[in-house]
Design a protein around this nucleic acid. Structure first.
Lengths: 227, 227
DNA sequence: GGAACAAAGAAAATCGAAATCATCCAGCCA
DNA sequence: TGGCTGGATGATTTCGATTTTCTTTGTTCC
């Protein structure tokens, strides 16, 4: 049983959720956490049994994951988990620095009180979650980073950032969670970003954010090189 | 019968192409050209009849188009063509300037002779195509712009640029093709970009490219405001 | 008269089976 | 011996039908 990342809250909790959505989220979790390994073939029959549903929702969910770059569609030859590479890891790092800088600047420029308060809240929850409660910690971590950008008025840019965040998470799981964060003072990096954002200091906030990503990137690179 | 944009050449021309891919390309053309109007509901039964195929390929193609931001999936209530707005048009313009600058810089930095030659070829074909042969002109126009970026070593960035290009095209069709290009000397703008790129003048090339987009953007904005 | 409710109709989502396609291996020919 | 053709097998893709869900309309009750 893979760990779940519990994402994308439904607007109406008791609304009937489609099988496609359930399968989509289940498969995404399994791919991000590495339970489904990079490069692994995704046979529809096996997934049917694994998830207890028919072929149609499976294929639709796989199609959705294709454009998230988490699944490759091999025309007429099925699906597979997208492979990973050091090159792609560096590419994601570069793009996150570039795009999240833009998004954060725009977010701070359009900031209001509600944004500021939800950001503080997200940070508080992050600090209060032990790192070893991986699913909850990861959920709060993503919420914090996305809250930083949330006031940005560019939905497409936000979608790109969200996608890149998810792509990056795979590499964090691949490198192994244990010891990864403990070795650095990540909490103070988060706090520095938070304070700069709350102070509306665009330059400092984007600098701290990029430094945060670069440090994590160097750390993960070293670990990934050993795989 | 909508105009076709004839995209995405198959690697093997006589390979059996899946119904899903056919439907995907057909629907994408119809959405980009405006044959399927923004906001219009996409009933699977109607599309089945229109494209002469079953529900599964239709739904899969619609799922793929969802992540291209050309189709909205309304959970349990079907699909619709993504709506358009002036705000989104400006957002796309902003993002294209930012992302294509990055991609073009990287492309020129990694440029080799093969890239340069395919770029010259793409430009030549563009200049030799009359503007009123819309499908061919549009295909060559996209090929030229993508050729500029083609040496960029960041596939994800290229995918984002490609997606934004397609999103933008919708607005060009919406504003109406006739008179749009004739009113400006677009050909010389393309030539300026080409020469700067061939000269490996990164600064000039990105400047010209951004100016090209901004001028087109202003022109289209004026026309879209009248709709 | 208005609102809540219920039933009928339409549409979407899903399932199970049939058709299509790729792969693999044996047999054959050069 | 090496390469090619041709069928058998397993997987993918697709279709037709069923089930579930949403929407609309008509009704009843305040």
């Amino acid at each position: 049983m893979p760990i779940t990342l519990s994402s994308d809250a439904q607007s109406d909790p008791n609304a009937p959720v489609s099988a496609t959505r359930r399968v989509y989220e289940a498969l995404r979790d399994r791919i991000l956490t590495g339970y489904l390994a990079p490069g692994q073939r995704l046979k529809v029959d096996l997934l049917k049994e694994m998830l207890g549903t028919g072929a149609s929702p499976i294929r639709e969910a796989l199609s959705l994951l294709t454009s998230d770059q988490l699944v490759d569609r091999l025309d007429q030859r099925g699906f597979r988990v997208s492979p990973v590479s050091v090159g792609q890891f560096n590419e994601i790092l570069m793009l996150r620095c570039a795009l999240e800088s833009m998004a954060l600047s725009q977010s701070i420029a359009a900031a209001d009180q509600a944004w500021e308060e939800s950001l503080v809240l997200a940070h508080h929850r992050l600090t209060r979650t032990p790192r070893d409660d991986v699913p909850v910690f990861e959920a709060h971590h993503k919420t914090f980073h996305m809250s930083l950008l949330a006031a940005c008025v560019s939905p497409i840019l936000l979608k790109f950032c969200d996608q890149l965040y998810d792509l990056n998470i795979r590499y964090r799981y691949l490198a192994g969670q244990s010891g990864g964060y403990a070795a650095r003072d990540v909490a103070s990096e988060h706090a520095a970003i938070l304070h700069a954002a709350v102070d509306r200091d665009t330059q400092k906030a984007t600098d701290e954010l990029i430094q945060h990503y670069r440090r994590t990137g160097e750390f993960l690179s070293a670990r990934l090189a050993r795989l």
